[in-house]
Design a protein around this nucleic acid. Structure first.
Lengths: 342, 342
DNA sequence: TTTAGCACTCTGGGGTTGCGAGTGCTAACC
DNA sequence: GGTTAGCACTCGCAACCCCAGAGTGCTAAA
């Protein structure tokens, strides 16, 4: 019996992995014998299992326990052995309904994270859509009182952000509309990256006699543009990870600590081109992600894009999670396309 | 030796509680003997401790361990025995600096939650300020394209909210400004509770020939008003609870589950008049809060108000946490007063 | 009322034992 | 050569026991 894959080995490995995913318990040769289609004895299975162990696919927690799939086995399972699942019609419709209700990308991603967290039992992260070149689409202000102005900005990707700006000096409606017109004239259609502090300060000169009272508006605009430029990250379902019996409380805590750092998440989600990617445990080189598995996709209708990620234990129902994630990605692309086109 | 409080009993109880808060270990009679100012033997202390136990202030995990304060002891400690602490000048300045940077109530409460979570090691919740009668202060729209409009609304309490509205029919700038003027004329200065669906639908009639294309704006306005009306809840520092060694992972999980339900939090924070309140463990009648303690204050400058809460283990450094919370409440009132006045 | 002394109680760690599950190996079988 | 039955073996796990250490409660004396 050589150390090469055979159909029977694959069959055994697949059955073992799926049972392990279901129960989380080591799987023994006797159990596998019952599940095999072609009747073989448990001794034969044991022989095959010994081979699979030698090939690095199986591990045993201790001598007298059944076998447990290694990360390498999960890798093979995901890449080759797993049968893709399709979502039921009703599930798809449910997702459609919830996502189509969104009026802007923020709401859309919020809802998508929520759905993913609910249905997969994992933690779900999404980023708001970013354009390759984030554009200023339109700016508007609202005079609340002579010292208070609210400002909102929409980007080319449809993201809306607003903030309050407090002015030390009194401002008139005329001054305000002159300033906002100046901003719109200058920046609409320009990339957000063009809204630098020097560029904004340069505009102060063009305000003429209004410069003193209106200058704070410009810096407020600059800050607002900054918040639009950075992708906002939404995470849902952290509690799912705590509830999961696969995680030692200790591990769950360090994982949640890791996930609470935004820049770590950005690194985790970015750095890949497209399509669906599954990163298993140590493959990420992140000690906190040992024992976890991360599934990432990108959505990218038109020239805007963002990421969606799913974080869960290594022992995850990949078939379902992946089907779920793929369909949601697809739907986001469709809905986002509609949102941006109009 | 009767079962009544004596100065010495109080002294022993205070020392015991503070040591227990510091270490989390049961405190023995020998240790207390060393800490007492007036020299007494450990046997005397034991007698006093036996009395305190009979009075319901002390508990022993098992016969051969030291004593542990009961919730009732914490109650007495907080109400009577505890020496109030004052924050250092530098801490106060640090808080001032961070909170004064806020330009609107949302940002203010966000920052306040963050500071509390960082410095107390507890979880901190805040609600955005609510007016007794939430007022519409001003409404503004921005025409993004012929089918997309962004709308923002500021309330009397200074809270700013915005949303996108998608229109099935094409809209012109003139139609839009007519609609928004109508909304401002009708609702500015009115309570948010007046923005009911019937009231809004009633306005459709006044739109005349624009009714068809502009009606969605009105319902969008209604929804926006709804989101302003409900207090937004911010929680920070949940991870602190997980890190706390006092919490069994199991308990921490159920606590976090409880804290993730917004309506539970609202109930927890509301229902009290003012001043600082400490609810210990079972006093809340919430099974999930057993073993935890909740400190709540209200901030209420002018006629707007909101709540701030701190959730941590029963064994909490109350003196510091309360000082911190009180100073932050005070500062919020001051800053919020400035924000609303202008 | 306070103190010294002493017996008592209880926890927690470390070592031992027995059971059950599941394997690895060997020898026989097709 | 691949497959099977049988059996000894290994190991984790739970239960049990034992012991040291810590801290108490009680009693009798100051």
């Amino acid at each position: 019996m050589a150390l090469v894959m055979s159909p029977r080995k694959e069959q055994i490995l697949t059955a073992l992995i799926e049972e392990y995913i279901r129960t989380g318990e080591p799987v023994g040769s006797k159990w596998l014998m019952d599940k095999m289609e072609t009747a073989v004895s448990s001794a034969t299975i044991r022989n095959e299992m010994a081979d699979l162990a030698a090939m690095g696919y199986l591990d045993q927690p201790h001598t007298s326990a059944g076998r447990v799939p290694t990360p390498q086995a999960f890798r093979l399972y995901i890449d080759k052995l797993m049968k893709k699942r399709k979502l039921s019609e009703s599930t798809r419709r449910h997702i459609d309904d919830r996502l189509e209700r969104a009026t802007d990308p923020d709401m859309l991603m919020e809802e998508a994270s929520q759905i993913l967290a609910e249905t997969t039992g994992c933690a779900a992260v999404t980023t708001t859509p970013q354009e390759q070149q984030m554009m200023v689409r339109r700016i508007e202000v609202m005079l609340v009182s002579s010292h208070v102005v609210a400002m909102m900005l929409m980007t080319g990707s449809g993201v809306l952000r607003s903030r309050v700006c407090r002015l030390p000096l009194h401002i008139t409606p005329a001054q305000l509309s002159a300033t906002i017109e100046l901003l719109n004239r200058h920046f609409v259609g320009k990339p957000l990256s063009a809204v630098t502090l020097p560029a904004v300060q340069n505009l102060v000169l063009q305000l003429g006699e209004n410069a003193l009272s209106c200058a704070p508006l410009l810096t407020a605009f600059h800050e607002l543009a900054q918040t639009c430029a950075e992708a906002e990250i939404r995470m849902k379902g952290q509690l799912n990870l705590l509830k999961n019996p696969d995680y030692h409380p200790e591990i769950a805590r360090s994982l949640l600590g890791f996930l609470s750092e935004e820049n770590q998440l950005v690194r985790m989600l970015s750095g890949h081109s497209g399509g669906l990617r599954v990163v298993l445990g140590d493959e990420s080189l992140q000690p906190e992600l040992t024992g976890s598995s991360v599934i990432v996709t990108r959505y990218a209708p038109h020239n805007i894009s963002g990421s969606i990620g799913l974080i869960g234990p290594l022992r995850m129902d990949y078939a379902t999670a992946i089907a779920e994630l793929e369909y949601i990605t697809e739907t986001i692309e469709r809905v986002l396309g509609q949102l941006v086109e109009e």
